[in-house]
Design a binder for these strands. Structure first.
Lengths: 218, 218
DNA sequence: TCTGTATTCAACAAATCAATTGAATAATAT
DNA sequence: ATATTATTCAATTGATTTGTTGAATACAGA
């Protein structure tokens, strides 16, 4: 009785179900930074290992992520860049049509950084001219898995003590995991509080890589 | 303890949850054809009225659709064209990364129509030259709510008896609800079986309208 | 006002999901 | 082999989702 249409809809629904839990969306954003093991993902997302493993298997069954075994670890990564497009579409729709999201984005996020973010191409241009210091605000591990070439990794918690290592003259552009990642917002706010000239990059590292721009690994 | 990030993820998850049920995805595609009442949506989707009403309320709470009261009916419609983009992203990701979907699309759907579908712009061009008959294969009600100007409404079930009303010379382009709507595929197959030259339009009516192309209403 | 109609609400059972716990598995190192 | 480590599986609990049924609401027309 189930025609091809019905079967297709059920498969699409499996994909929707993968996106229907906040922890899984959190894991997806972490995985988007680069391939990672179950244990480190569990820790970064604040989940027990068994629970993280189960969420990751839901994501794998949905097709959004794939996994491979390396030694005794299982590494998860995004199935492709179109997953980023799907997440972007989800965010855009939520921002436009979910009152609560619009409120948060226009309140918490926009307030922290009234200025337009720097676009990727803008940043590329300014980097070539050597006019700018690029800060990667993510944890070390994510920086190690891939970052913008020439960027300096200063995780948010270390920003205060390492601030004086930066020349006070040059402009600073900060980035982190994605469009709503709070790390870069906090960093820009902190830097401006110190009288620095600081801006935020649009989106985050996964989008930079997906745009085909150069990437460096440790 | 729930920071803004957590709240955002929970809201995104609400959107995902709306997409996590095959009946709701079915209803969404129907709503995308045009504003419709609960009763007609329930019938078209093969659901009881109470059940359809509940699914529709889930969709409304998620922000994907809105509703308004007209007389004693409640009419539901899409919140915006970005919902179509979200659905397209969902389909694309499923097609690329869910084995079962790839199998179905490359089997059932592609087989029925090996040729590339006609693009929207192509169809516009051919229509201007008067070289083509455009068939809308959807049920009357959906045709009435909006269709491609100059198209002829022949619901799939009426195709056989009304086939001879079409000039045997002109090429036929058929369309229906969307990229995986089976109606147009079946129609093209049936027409070709009768020795007609028939092609399928890419996607369906909602995408035509969202592209800003002209639309006619009864 | 009374009547019929469209939709929503409320209550229920069955199924599914989420998180925890502890055991099982698989690969590596000793 | 044995021990160690990373991950998955299985069993359990409580919460959520789904679909059904029948009642409640809201509204228009006679």
């Amino acid at each position: 009785m189930a025609g091809p249409k019905q079967t297709l809809l059920e498969q699409f629904a499996v994909l929707g179900k993968a996106l229907s839990n906040a922890h899984r969306l959190d894991l997806l954003e972490l995985i988007a930074q680069g391939e990672r093991s179950v244990e480190t993902l569990a820790e970064a997302a604040g989940l027990s290992i068994a629970n993280a493993s189960q969420h990751l298997q839901v994501l794998r069954r949905s097709g959004l992520v794939t996994s491979r075994k390396l030694g005794q670890q299982v590494l998860y990564r995004l199935s492709g860049d179109d997953v980023l497009s799907l997440l972007a579409a989800l965010r855009q729709t939520a921002e436009r049509h979910v009152a609560e999201v619009g409120r948060l984005v226009n309140g918490y996020f926009k307030e922290k950084d009234k200025m337009e973010p720097v676009t990727r191409n803008d940043l590329m241009r300014r980097m070539k001219e050597g006019l700018v210091t690029v800060l990667d605000i993510r944890p070390e591990q994510e920086f190690a898995a891939g970052h913008i070439p020439g960027s300096l990794n200063i995780p948010l918690k270390d920003l205060k003590k390492r601030l004086n290592a930066l020349s006070p003259e040059t402009e600073i552009v900060a980035y982190c995991r994605g469009p709503y990642c709070v790390l870069a917002y906090e960093a820009v706010a902190a830097l401006r509080g110190q009288g620095r000239k600081a801006l935020r990059l649009e989106d985050g590292f996964p989008e930079w890589r997906a745009a085909g721009l150069p990437v460096e690994k440790l």
